[in-house]
Simulated scan of single mutants.
Amino acid sequence: MREWMPVSSSPRGRLALAAVKEFGARPFDEVTVAELAAAAQVTTGALYHHFESKLGLYAFVRADVERRLLDRMEGALTAAGPDRSAAVTSALLVGLDFAVREGFLRILGDPPAGTGPDPLAEMLAEAVPAAPLLGRVLAAAWRAALAAVAEGEPPDQVRAAVAALGLRLPDA
């Protein structure tokens, strides 16, 4: 259960909503604290008060967006049945469609900051326990697909490329 859900009328909620939009569309380094504050109609002090830093706000919204992504991808893995290759391909496509539809190309297309675990790579590795390194490889390929869309490639062509990966996964 969520500890907090953005409420658009609160300064914290407006900051979170503005950050999701800005970090979804542009790389972290290109988004300024002043732009985030202006988009949320708050002062920069409010950003620092609620999140301590731009990185703190980014980490907060990244965790939320990533959890929504993983929920959808895990659902696709489960719904696809026992064929692991079809299930993983389905999860990758569901995740891609979600990220494109919601405008989360940059925030999900960049690997997680820092030295912590990569939740997407871990989820994909669990989906293919016989080849756990494949989770990292698939996560990198999926992020490259998002980057292609962010750089102007047509989403339907990128989706077709992901679908054409033709995964032949080992049995669990």
Rank of each mutant, 00 (worst) to 15 (best):
M1P: 03
M1K: 05
R2M: 12
V7M: 06
S8E: 10
S8Y: 10
S8N: 08
S8D: 11
R12F: 07
R14I: 11
R14C: 06
R14W: 08
L15P: 09
L15C: 11
A18T: 02
A19E: 11
V20G: 01
V20F: 08
K21N: 15
E22V: 14
F23A: 12
F23S: 07
F23V: 06
G24Y: 09
A25D: 09
R26T: 08
P27G: 14
F28R: 14
V31F: 05
T32R: 11
V33H: 01
E35K: 11
A38E: 13
A39V: 06
A40Q: 05
T44F: 05
G45Q: 14
Y48N: 12
Y48T: 10
H49K: 15
H50C: 09
F51V: 09
S53F: 04
L55G: 05
G56Y: 09
L57N: 03
L57H: 09
Y58M: 01
A59M: 13
A59T: 13
R62N: 07
A63K: 13
D64H: 13
D64E: 14
V65R: 09
V65Y: 03
E66K: 05
R67D: 14
L69N: 02
L69Y: 04
L70T: 13
L70D: 05
D71E: 11
D71R: 07
R72C: 07
R72F: 03
A79K: 06
P82G: 10
P82W: 01
P82A: 06
P82E: 09
D83N: 08
S85H: 00
S85E: 00
S85M: 00
S90W: 03
L92E: 05
L92R: 06
L92W: 03
L93E: 04
L93A: 02
V94H: 02
L96D: 00
D97N: 04
F98H: 15
E102H: 02
E102Q: 11
G103T: 10
F104P: 01
L105G: 07
L105T: 11
G109S: 10
D110I: 00
A113H: 09
G116Q: 04
P117A: 13
L120S: 05
E122G: 04
E122V: 13
M123L: 15
L124G: 00
E126F: 11
A127C: 04
V128S: 05
A130C: 10
P132R: 14
L133R: 14
L133G: 14
L134C: 00
G135A: 10
G135Y: 08
V137H: 05
L138S: 04
A139N: 05
A141Q: 11
W142S: 10
A144R: 15
L146K: 09
A147M: 10
A150H: 01
E151T: 12
E153W: 03
E153R: 15
E153D: 09
P154M: 00
P155R: 02
Q157K: 12
Q157V: 15
R159K: 13
A160G: 14
A160I: 07
A160L: 15
A161H: 09
V162F: 14
V162G: 08
A163T: 04
A163P: 08
A164K: 12
G166C: 03
L167A: 03
R168I: 01
L169F: 04
P170E: 08
D171T: 15
A172M: 07
A172V: 08
A172G: 13
A172E: 15
